[in-house]
């Protein structure tokens, strides 16, 4: 599933980034912390499919739908 499907309050792990992402964008995402196995928590969803707010590592980011759909995650349940 993608980060965009994460509900408020849920936690997951980053699994991988969409493989067709431009190299420079995916490098930046990794540098920002979107790296395999990093823990990611959804802090907030906005109305009308506005950007969501997540916590990853020691940072809080806001992402729009387009990019959140290009980050793949696995929730705890899927792991077990």
């Amino acid at each position: 599933m993608t980060l965009w499907e994460l509900n408020k309050g849920e936690t997951a792990n980053v699994s991988h980034l969409w493989e067709h992402l431009d190299d420079s964008v995916s490098t930046r995402l990794v540098e920002m912390g979107f790296e395999t196995d990093q823990n990611i928590t959804c802090l907030r969803r906005s109305v009308f499919a506005g950007p969501l707010v997540i916590q990853i590592g020691d940072c809080v980011y806001s992402l729009e739908q387009k990019i959140a759909e290009q980050i793949f995650i696995s929730t705890q349940e899927t792991i077990s």
Binding site: D22, S24, V25, R28, L29, M32, P51, V53, C59, V60, Y61, S62, L63, E64, K66, I67
Partner: peptide, 11 residues
């Protein structure tokens, strides 16, 4: 478009 940084900002 491709290398455009998508909207992702640190709070």
């Amino acid at each position: 478009e491709q290398s455009e940084m998508p909207f992702i900002i640190e709070l």
